[in-house]
Structures are given as structure tokens and as C-alpha cells.
Design a protein around this nucleic acid. Sequence first.
RNA 1: GGGGGAGUGUCCCGAGCGGCAAAGGGGGCGGACUGUAAAUCCGCUGGCUAUGCCUUCGUAGGUUCGAGUCCUACCUCCCCCA
Length: 419
Amino acid sequence: MMSFRSDFLRTLDERGFIHQISDDEGLDKLFATETVTAYIGFDPTAPSLHAGSLIQIMMLHWLQATGHRAVSLMGGGTGMVGDPSFKDEARQLMTLDTIEANIASIKRVFSNYLDYDAGATSALMINNAEWLRGLNYLEFLRDVGRHFSVNRMLSFDSVKMRLEREQSLSFLEFNYMILQAYDFVELAKRYDCRLQMGGSDQWGNIVNGIDLGHRMGTPQLYALTSPLLTTASGAKMGKSANGAVWLNADMLGAYEFWQYWRNTEDADVTRFLKLYTTLPMSEIARLSALGGAEINEVKKILATEVTAMLHGRAAAEAAAETARKTFEEGALAADLPTVELAGGTLGADGIGVLSAFSEVAGLVASNGEARRQIKSGGLRVNDVVVTDDKRVLTPADLTPEGVIKLSFGKKKHVLLKPV
RNA sequence: GGGGGAGUGUCCCGAGCGGCAAAGGGGGCGGACUGUAAAUCCGCUGGCUAUGCCUUCGUAGGUUCGAGUCCUACCUCCCCCA
């Protein structure tokens, strides 16, 4: 790969964000000579983005940090269609209400990474519903649709699998790539946006936008994709034991978020430091030199840095401290995830362990699962292994701090607290 | 339009003479070993008021003491012919 002159591309390159660029020399020149507006699209498929999207958000962050204008595009229009790229079946359609609610919820995260009040390089939050929802079908077909070749669209890898496999690809979904291409052109016209970034699975969609731009008379547009990230052992980013690693604080607390990064595999630590923190490269080089058990200290730094960007420095340090107490001292940390019990719930007859773990704490999925885990020694109450599935938790189990600590495996803990 | 084939445990792939809560794998979870890592080994991997009850094999009916298995119709997909 060539060496870049522009701060933005050099930074992205040395930190491992770049998978493919449509015209690296041309784009480098653009970034070196002017303030560039670039965007990444986010479809509102859930009330929160998850760790898998963090790499995209970080790209926008660096874009702004190196003096350019970052646009996060909410898919209020495209979300009504659903991206079929590399999916083997159609997603369920979302209602407008759901889409709007999801967008409102997702939006909150961006202000932690982007500055929306920075003069000429303020970040922008735009919703493609703005131009997509009002489209006139016939006009759109004539102005935009005529530039697309179905033959060519069918040849894209992103839909090939779907076609070869057997699953039907509805006409609705098939239009997604056209809408995304059109988004790029609209952003170019309205906001002078020149670059679209995204995950490598978006390459085809982005390039379509560039082509459409040619035909519809925009300036030269560019594509930049990031690698599809997996952990060293092949798992997709953003999934953990308890499900997705959400970015919204109301869906995943800072402590659990911190834990996700703390549990990074050795082989991923350096890569993640570069991608997910803003530590200087020299510092990352120093940390990467540490090996053996020392790498645990590096993982803590990784976890704290990533968490600090999202949830704030104070919350990150509190999470680190909670983890230190819990894992290193074996002490009881008061701010582990806590379930409050309404007055007297523990009082009368106590709570059976099974329902305490399943219904009350939500650590396991069902009573049956709790029973199985007891058999294999995976459940503990106040750090004592549970052996009897008939055991009942009573006020006598309360620690001096007035809580009962439930643990599932070594890493998942919940405090029950009567109030 | 004609002919042939397929849909299995709500993560995936996949076996399944009429007695089936249904083989096997992957993934996931727990345990052991470690460093809150990886690798490895062991166990678990429908629900419940639990020596029993309930819900599961594309959908709806039917035959049978008993249906994932047989019959009928329907849905979806694949292949061949037109």
C-alpha cells in the first residue's frame, strides 16, 4: 500500500482501518488539499448500535479529528427497506414508529465521539428520510432507475449468495442498493459530500453510488471500506456471552462494556488498541511490547480507554475499580449490576435459588438452565457454590453490606438488594 | 404448464424401520487447567408447580392404541423438461 500524505488517511492506514479505497491517490490528494465531507450510514435496525459499529464511529471520529466534516447518516428511509447485502434471508420489516424510536435512541451515542458544535468542521447528523420518503416513484425510476443495470446488480457478491442459495430476494430489498447509491448522490449535492465509508460488506453499495454520481453529474466520489472485523478466533465483533455489546448505556452498563474489552484475546489486543482507542501510536507500540501476564495490564488500559470514550472517564474508572475488587481482591464491589427487590420480597418465605438466578437476576434463561448449571457447579451465592437446587435464599444470606451476590460462572455477577 | 426432490430440536448444519424430547457435528454455556487470554480435556445445550405433565420435526387436516416417520391438501424452495 502507498504511503499517504494526508493526516486522515495516514492515521486510518497506520491504525488498520483501511480495507479498500476506490482511488487511493486521488482521495489522498483531496484530503491533503481541502476540508472534506464524508459520511457513513447507519440503519436503525435496533434501539442501539453495538460494538460492531464502533469501528465506523471511530472512522468518523478520526475524520473530524484530522480537520474534516463527519456526517452520520441515519437510515430513516433505507431502514424501511432493509439491506439484503450478504444476508441469507429478509429481515422483518420495521414499522415507522420503530424506526423513528430506534433513530432517536441511536443518536445519543454519537455525541460522545463527534463534536456537533465545532464551527466549519462540526459533525452533521442527517436522516435520509429527508429525501427518500417523499420520492415520486415514476420520477425516481426515470431519473435514477434508468442508470442501473439489473444484469450488473445481479452480479454483485452481496446478493449472489442469496440468489445461488435458494432464498428469494424480494424486489423491495433489491432496491436497497439503489437507494443507498442515491443517498450518496443526494449528500454530494446537498452537502458536498465526497466520500462514503463503511464496512467491507458495503463496497458494492458504495461503488454503485460513485457510478450513479458520474451519471448524474456530481464531482468525483470516493469509497473507503474497513475490514470485516472478527476476533482472532473468528467470532464476530460485538457479540458476547449475554448477547450483543450495545453502546447505549441503558442497554448495557459501563461495567459490562468494560468487561467485554477486558476479556479481549491476547492476539487481538494491539489491533484493538489501534482501532478503538485514541492512544498515540507510540504508546500503543510500548504497550504491545508487553507479553505474558503483563498483557493483562494492557487489556485493562484497553478496556478503560474504550469505555471512557463511550461512557466517560469517571464511569470507566469506576468499572475498572469494580472489576479490580471483584476479581483481584475477591471482595464485594457495591456497584456490580444490582437488582433491587421491592420491600419484603426476601422476607416471608425467601426466594428459591432457581428463580433467584433466572427470573429475578436474569443470569440464566430458565429454571431448567439454572438446575443444569447447579449440576455442573456454575452457580454461586456469596461466592459459595450452590449444590442444592431446593436451596432458599433468606435474610440470613444477606452480607453485612445488605446484599446477596449471585454469580454465574466466574465472570457474571449480580447483586440482589432488598429495598 | 409437465416431471423429480427438499423443508427436522426458534443459532446453524444434519441423521431419523410407526413407540421420539428425536443420532451426530458446529456454535454457545459451565467445569478443570491458566493470566478474567488462547489451546486442550470433561459436562451441559426444549419448558414446567418434575420419578410426572406440557410444547416441538414447513402449514392444515386424516389413518392409527400410537405419526418426524403413512395418506390428502396447501405454502416455500431447488433441479430437469416445456
